[in-house]
């Protein structure tokens, strides 16, 4: 067998071996599982779509996470993500895609707060018709604070203003 063939086979074999390793790592990459944010009502999608539109209630939209922007409605200077800047969840970000974000200790909240001072359904953050983000306290025991003031009514959230819930601080950022 010629030297050249053997060299080619030797290098080819190493390449194939590494290809296997890389494919295996790719499988691991695509094998992520865990939690996903789904909007409630997404299960009724197909049948209720027409009726829902007539009732001026938008069809439920499935959110997969990631950076999908909702249509062309994103205004310039509008916040694109919500960042937890203090508390046990520090560093958590949630992309803002027009969905309501619920905060609280309840397990079905968008952000499940592990905070002794938080109520199970503490507050929610949602966009109004103009795309302005509003924070609303849901009758929590210890209150929700925007900057230093305790919320009594739904209040628009400026970019970067700290929303305090117990020991957790949340900000909207671009």
């Amino acid at each position: 067998m010629s030297e050249l063939t053997l060299t080619v086979m030797r290098l080819g074999f190493l390449a194939v071996l590494w290809l296997f390793v890389i494919v295996a790592v790719q499988v691991i990459r695509s094998d992520l599982f865990g939690t996903r944010v789904t909007q409630r009502g997404a299960r009724r999608e197909s049948g209720g779509r027409q009726a829902a539109r007539q009732q001026a209630s938008p069809p439920p939209q499935r959110q997969q996470g990631g950076g999908r922007q909702s249509g062309g409605r994103q205004r310039r200077g509008a916040p694109t993500k919500l960042v937890v800047s203090e508390g046990t969840l520090t560093g958590t970000t949630v992309a803002l895609q027009g969905q309501t974000i619920s905060l609280g200790r309840a397990h079905d909240s968008t952000i499940v707060l592990d905070d002794d001072y938080a109520s199970s359904r503490h507050a929610r953050i949602y966009p109004d018709r103009d795309g302005q983000w509003i924070v609303e306290d849901l009758g929590s025991t210890n209150g929700t604070y925007l900057d230093r003031t305790r919320l009594t009514t739904p209040t628009p959230v400026p970019l970067g203003a700290p929303i305090r819930i117990g020991k957790t601080v949340i900000e909207l950022r671009k």
Binding site: F33, G34, T35, R36, V37, T38, Q39, R40, G41, S57, P58, P59, P60, Q61, Q63, S70, G71, R73, Q97, G98, Q99, T100, I101, S102, H107, D108, S109, T110, V112, R124, Y126, P127, D128, R129, G131
Partner: peptide, 14 residues
């Protein structure tokens, strides 16, 4: 699709 109305989100397991 307009999504300015509010619905609650859930975190489900994949």
């Amino acid at each position: 699709m307009s999504s300015s109305n509010s619905h609650t989100s859930t975190i489900g397991a994949i």
